[in-house]
Simulated assay, not measured.
Amino acid sequence: MARIWARTNCAFDKSGRGWCQTGDCGGLLQCQGYGSPPNTLAEYALNQFGNKDFFDISLVDGFNVPMEFSPTSNGCTRGIKCAQDIKTQCPNELKAPGGCHNSCTVYKTDKYCCNSGRCGPTNLSKFFKDRCRDAYSYPKDDPTSSFTCPGGTNYKVVFCP
């Protein structure tokens, strides 16, 4: 599984050290791990079970920019988009500079993080789902949020479509 995300309001020096308001990579220009929340994620796994690619947009780490993730070849046409400006509608308890946190980031409890495997949508995860129907809104949201194309498909990720 791989991830793509936007970083916003960044400043780096000539050595590649600095900071981003959202999606920061430990102060490094060249990411060596995951970006810090809040960040909208494009996630994908290529040539998996049944020679299929799996892809999604995830809001499990929160939201920082609208995103589109779409196939561009191989006869696969079902793209996904989260184009709402969630930042301006973000519930007060989830607001973050430059974005909107997911409830797990804020509350760190099993109800919101699904660590035990027993969880369902909450009012806060529904806030995200109501605005971006195809995006993951909590960790067990597979049935409405994971999409496939044949292996070998090309894709595009568009920030702020």
Rank of each mutant, 00 (worst) to 15 (best):
C10I: 04
F12P: 02
G16E: 03
G16H: 00
R17K: 15
R17V: 13
W19Y: 15
C20L: 10
C20G: 09
G26F: 11
Q30C: 08
Q30V: 02
Q32K: 10
Q32A: 12
P37V: 08
P38E: 13
P38V: 08
P38N: 07
N39P: 02
N39R: 07
E43D: 06
A45D: 12
A45I: 04
L46C: 01
L46K: 04
Q48M: 02
G50W: 03
N51L: 03
K52Q: 14
I57F: 05
G62R: 03
G62N: 05
G62C: 05
F63T: 00
F63W: 07
F63D: 00
N64T: 11
E68Y: 04
P71W: 02
T72W: 00
S73H: 13
G75H: 03
G79W: 04
I80W: 00
K81A: 15
A83D: 06
C90D: 09
P91R: 09
P91L: 15
L94N: 04
L94G: 00
C100N: 04
H101W: 02
N102D: 14
C104A: 08
Y107W: 14
D110C: 15
D110N: 15
C113E: 14
C113T: 13
S116T: 15
C119P: 07
G120Y: 12
L124F: 13
L124Q: 03
S125D: 14
K129I: 04
D130K: 14
D134H: 11
